[in-house]
Simulated assay, not measured.
Amino acid sequence: MELRHLRYFVVLTEELHFGRAAERLHMAQPPLSQRIRDLERELGVRLFDRTRHRVRLTEAGALLLEHARPVLESADAAREAMRRIRPGAAGVLRAGVPPDTAPVTLRTLVDTFASMEPSVLIDLNEMTTDEQLARLREGELDVGMIRHPADTVGLESGPVVHRSLGVVLAEEHPAAGAETVRLRRLNGSPLVIFPRLMAPKLYDHMLTVCRDNGFLPGAIRHARNPHFIHGLVLAGRGVHLNEEPSAGLPPGLVWRPVDERSLTWSTSVVWPRAHTADVVATFADAALSGLLAAGHVHPR
Score class of each variant (00 low, 15 high):
residue 237 R to G: 07
residue 171 E to D: 12
residue 193 I to R: 05
residue 102 A to T: 08
residue 276 T to N: 10
residue 202 L to E: 09
residue 128 T to D: 14
residue 70 P to Q: 12
residue 119 S to K: 10
residue 60 A to M: 00
residue 262 S to I: 00
residue 125 N to E: 09
residue 252 G to K: 11
residue 184 R to Q: 15
residue 140 E to A: 13
residue 146 I to W: 12
residue 86 R to I: 01
residue 15 E to W: 08
residue 294 A to E: 10
residue 150 A to Y: 04
residue 295 G to Y: 07
residue 241 L to E: 13
residue 293 A to K: 13
residue 21 A to I: 09
residue 63 L to K: 00
residue 222 H to A: 15
residue 80 E to C: 01
residue 91 G to W: 08
residue 196 R to W: 03
residue 44 G to W: 04
residue 47 L to P: 00
residue 226 P to M: 07
residue 246 S to C: 04
residue 78 A to D: 12
residue 191 L to G: 02
residue 58 T to W: 00
residue 253 L to I: 06
residue 152 T to W: 03
residue 284 A to K: 04
residue 256 R to E: 06
residue 82 M to H: 14
residue 129 T to P: 10
residue 282 T to M: 14
residue 162 H to V: 01
residue 268 S to L: 12
residue 141 L to N: 10
residue 198 M to V: 04
residue 127 M to N: 11
residue 281 A to E: 14
residue 120 V to C: 03
residue 128 T to F: 15
residue 242 N to D: 03
residue 197 L to V: 10
residue 61 G to C: 00
residue 241 L to Y: 12
residue 265 W to F: 02
residue 173 H to A: 09
residue 255 W to Q: 10
residue 111 D to W: 06
residue 141 L to M: 08
residue 299 P to D: 13
residue 146 I to A: 11
residue 271 W to A: 03
residue 6 L to T: 11
residue 220 I to Q: 00
residue 12 L to G: 08
residue 223 A to E: 15
residue 49 D to N: 12
residue 184 R to S: 14
residue 171 E to I: 04
residue 156 E to P: 00
residue 112 T to H: 11
residue 190 P to H: 01
residue 114 A to C: 05
residue 161 V to F: 04
residue 110 V to M: 11
residue 254 V to C: 06
residue 88 G to N: 06
residue 270 V to E: 05
residue 161 V to T: 12
residue 49 D to Y: 00
residue 93 L to K: 06
residue 30 P to V: 06
residue 249 L to Y: 13
residue 245 P to R: 05
residue 252 G to A: 12
residue 293 A to I: 06
residue 175 A to R: 05
residue 293 A to C: 05
residue 157 S to P: 02
residue 169 L to G: 06
residue 89 A to G: 03
residue 172 E to F: 09
residue 180 T to Y: 02
residue 32 L to C: 04
residue 253 L to T: 04
residue 203 Y to E: 03
residue 48 F to D: 04
residue 78 A to I: 08
residue 194 F to D: 06
residue 275 H to L: 02
residue 17 H to L: 01
residue 42 E to T: 05
residue 49 D to S: 14
residue 236 G to F: 10
residue 134 A to W: 07
residue 136 L to T: 09
residue 150 A to K: 01
residue 64 L to A: 01
residue 76 D to T: 07
residue 196 R to E: 13
residue 291 L to A: 08
residue 24 R to T: 00
residue 300 R to H: 08
residue 250 P to Q: 09
residue 128 T to L: 14
residue 142 D to Q: 02
residue 75 A to D: 13
residue 230 H to E: 13
residue 231 G to R: 15
residue 142 D to R: 09
residue 115 S to T: 10
residue 118 P to A: 05
residue 152 T to Y: 03
residue 10 V to M: 11
residue 264 T to S: 15
residue 243 E to D: 11
residue 63 L to E: 08
residue 10 V to G: 15
residue 148 H to Q: 12
residue 49 D to V: 14
residue 300 R to G: 14
residue 193 I to A: 12
residue 300 R to Y: 05
